[in-house]
Amino acid sequence: MTDINAYEAAPEGEFRDYVALLKPRVMSLVVFTAFVGLFVAPVDVHPFIAFCSVLFIALGGGASGALNMWYDRDIDAIMNRTQSRPIPSGRVEHSAALGLGLVLSIISVMMLGLVANWFAAGFLAFTIFFYAVVYTVWLKRWTPQNIVIGGAAGAFPPMIGWACATGGISIESLLMFALVFFWTPPHFWALALFMKEDYHNAGVPMLTVTHGRRVARRHIFAYTLVLAPFALWLGLTSVGGPLYMAVAVVLNAAFIRGGWQVLRRNEDAAIADGYLVERRVFKLSLYYLFLHFLALLVQSWMGGW
């Protein structure tokens, strides 16, 4: 007698499922800030070398995204926002994500070393380690300050871009780091204010959950105040100029005002209008970062002070 068995087949994803593992939307931020960091640096880089450098920085960022999705598959399955990701939706096996993340990490670091220089490559390796291990494995589930320190991983790309051109670190690249670093907490806490249930259900210690929304509102405002001097200071360095300064002054005034409005509201008012102000500040924060780096790019093209 013959038995017919149906085996639980391993999931087979399409190509785009593997691309989705690399977090293309986060990658676009990495590409843009790394490119600006490389472009505004005082050393001329051959366009093809610059293209390849940004490509491999982005690939390294994508690799850390895949490692993050591999480790976070349990909480991704709980949160609404992340349920449709390739692993929780069953399209890609988690071991495949781990393999892809590790292989792409090695390829991107080696190639960046060969394309640009080994300082930039080491920096990229450190960034991948920081995001995949320090943020994802250690901090994210342990402390409500997770995104403050984890934000550093997102702030390294412009420094790596700068390092690709110059082979080192300088005050300009440190200030570009500070710009993204201090921008991250208000950006994510504004998101956490109106995506309230998600993180709580997954057991991720978000500030809004552990210390309450009142504290989160205070933190948002405080970080917009801390952020502004760094954004303006960057305008006084060699990469700054009148255009950047004008953009920075307007955007920081708007961001501080937004932070103040978030601080002044209470939950009842926010629920009444469906978190209108919080959503607006979150949207503003996206423009804030994009326009700052765009201004740096245009300023560099125009010539600075």
Partner: peptide, 21 residues
């Protein structure tokens, strides 16, 4: 097929990239 074609394109692109470099 989507995976195979995708990987093929990526590998060809990588070869072209290394040649250009």
């Amino acid at each position: 097929r989507s995976r195979n074609v995708g990987l093929g394109v990526v590998l060809l692109g990588f070869v072209a990239l290394v040649f250009g470099l």
